[in-house]
Amino acid sequence: MAKKQYSFYPGCSSQSGASSSNYLTSTQSMVNLLDVALNEIPDWNCCGASIGYAGGGELPRVALSARNLALSEQHNPGQEVVATCAACWLATREAKERLDHSATLLAETNEALKEAGLVFKNEAPPARHMVEVLIEDIGYETLKSGVKKPLEGIKFAGYVGCQTNRPFGIDGESFENPMYLDRMVESMGGEAITNYDQKVTCCGGALAFSEPEKSQKQIHDIIESAYDHGADMIVTPCPLCQANVEIYQGEVNKRYGKKFNIPVTYYSQLITVAYGGSSKDAALDGQIIRATRLEEIANK
């Protein structure tokens, strides 16, 4: 049995054939290499993300997260809930925070959950992001000690984005200039561009879809700064950041007359490759803009 056991909330975009399925594949490879077990919450549902406010209101949104937490309490008792998606983590943590602070909301949530035959006891600690498992439960030094193929010579712009950073963020990190992603890159033997100045800029989130012209300005700035700082690729902990910054590069090029073509990867892909996993393990075949420098190391 793996050393560390967690109750895992993968989220909609991670499912097969969905926009961050490569994140899940590489996460699974990564945790196998790190001897961590992720026990999926049975029958988990969507967290409502951020944009869910428009149709859902507050209580139905809180109920979404409470259902997942109740299922986790029931099926994975005593295990901390871990999410890989920034929005899943944020919504789950935010719901619990509100339920902790309002007896009315908690009572109403349980009244709603009763309709699905569930009860939320509020026993578990707040949900955690996978990044917290890596840097707090495992630690940079231990992470570094398992590296088989250092990511030598690759320059990474660590794009942290919004929701793994605000409003909760990672303990001990600042909102304006979090360093954990850079430290993870360095632990894997890569070169972190520590003065990358767009690391916490918003990619537009859901508005990349509804307000493309406004959001693509954000995406443009995030990519241009990565180029200006000499990055070979961007790395991020957030599936929506990854998707927005990777898939709209063609659109941004058309709008701004640029020739951007920079790979956008996940930290889980970096760790998988550095730990000796194959391109397939790291789901590098899921890149729309191929991360050839990583593929070369994986294929060595």
Binding site: P60, V62, L64, A116
Partner: peptide, 13 residues
């Protein structure tokens, strides 16, 4: 169960 839960949550809110 999921739909019943959301319906109830909306009613309460």
């Amino acid at each position: 169960g999921f739909h019943a839960m959301l319906k109830k949550a909306r009613e309460l809110e």
